[in-house]
């Protein structure tokens, strides 16, 4: 199977029902995308497929159509994306395990709505964080628009 991840083409031979998550982690060693629940609930495995957020634990590799962007693909030439920079500025991460998924979810939100309200954020960020970093996630997302204008 041919798949494009972070701008790079990969030819992968796995069973076609293998979830994208495990292709990323075990086959391609892109371990920034995390396993959390395996049932599409927690969001730790979130990646972008054609700029849309997708829970990679519940999509089989055969069903992936389009360019996949993982947490490793967000920074450009070593420069953090605006969402990543906001995360650093607000010192969001604690254990950090869910944060790649949170950042992907926030990236998808900002791409379609650069200046989201609290309600927009509530609706879009449904990823679970057991450290409870939600307040700083909200502050970080709200700061992005301000920083860019």
């Amino acid at each position: 199977m041919i798949i494009s991840i972070n701008g790079k083409i990969h030819n992968i031979s796995v069973e076609s029902d293998t979830p994208l998550l495990w292709v990323l982690r075990d086959e391609l060693k892109l371990s920034g995308t995390k396993y959390g629940c395996g049932i599409g609930t927690c969001g730790a495995c979130m990646v972008l497929v054609n700029y849309e957020p997708v829970r990679s634990c519940t999509i089989s590799i055969k069903d992936v159509q389009g360019e996949v962007t993982t947490i490793e693909g967000l920074a450009e030439k070593g420069k953090l994306s605006p969402v990543q920079q906001a995360w650093v500025d607000h010192q969001v991460a604690q254990c950090g395990y869910c944060q790649p998924g949170q950042i992907i979810a926030a990236t998808a939100l900002i791409n379609r709505n650069p200046n989201p309200t609290d309600e927009d954020i509530n609706e879009s960020i449904t990823n679970i964080c057991r450290c409870g970093t939600y307040q700083r996630i909200r502050q970080a997302i709200r700061s992005i628009y301000k920083n860019q204008t």
Partner: peptide, 17 residues
Amino acid sequence: PRIDMLSKINGTAKFGI
């Protein structure tokens, strides 16, 4: 600033898994 922050933001932090 937390020493582990950047690696936890760019996906390079290594957890046991």
